[in-house]
Each structure stands twice: as C-alpha cells, then as structure tokens.
Amino acid sequence: MRFDFERILKLSMLELEEKEKDKIKEDMEKIIEWVSKLEELDIEGEEYFYLKKSSLREDEPKETLEREDVLPENNFQGIFFIVPKVVEK
C-alpha cells in the first residue's frame, strides 16, 4: 500500500537516519499489507468494540501526590517547565 511516509513521520514527531528510514519504511509497507488481510471481511452493520464501564466521580478533592515530590529538579522553575522560546516577538 502506498502512503505518505514523510507525513506519518511528521505526525509522529520522529526523525529517522537515512539508513534506518529505508528499513522502517519497507517494514511498514510489509506490515500494512499483511494486516490488510482484514479487507476480506465484510463488516457492514457491525459495531465498534468499546468498554462499557464508566468511572465518573464527584468533583471532590482527594489526597494525592505532593507537588514537590512529583516535579523534576531540572528544567523547572517556580510552577513552570522551562522550554525553548515558543513565540516570536
């Protein structure tokens, strides 16, 4: 099956070295062709699989992890994660 490999890479936020790229692209094409075996099944009118359980709860605060235990030592200041500048002037 043909698909836009560069687009999938971009959506996945992944970069590959040239060498790795050919191998992974080839593997993917093979795997996609392999799983396309499902095409032979007629699923007209069938329903999706889903979990019937719902776990909504009252919006009440409960005991949870301490903030200082969870936050990292690096790349963190006050209540902010430090990242490269994301907006231009």
């Binding site: 799983v35 499902l38 099944l41 699923i43 069938e46 329903e47 999706y48 699989f49 889903y50």
Partner: peptide, 11 residues
C-alpha cells in the same frame, strides 16, 4: 484500519 480492527475485535 483502526475502525475496522475495532469492529473485528468485537466479532
């Protein structure tokens, strides 16, 4: 792909 696989899972 995803949609069909989910339906076959149900089957």
């Amino acid at each position: 792909f995803y949609g069909k696989a989910s339906m076959v899972r149900k089957l």
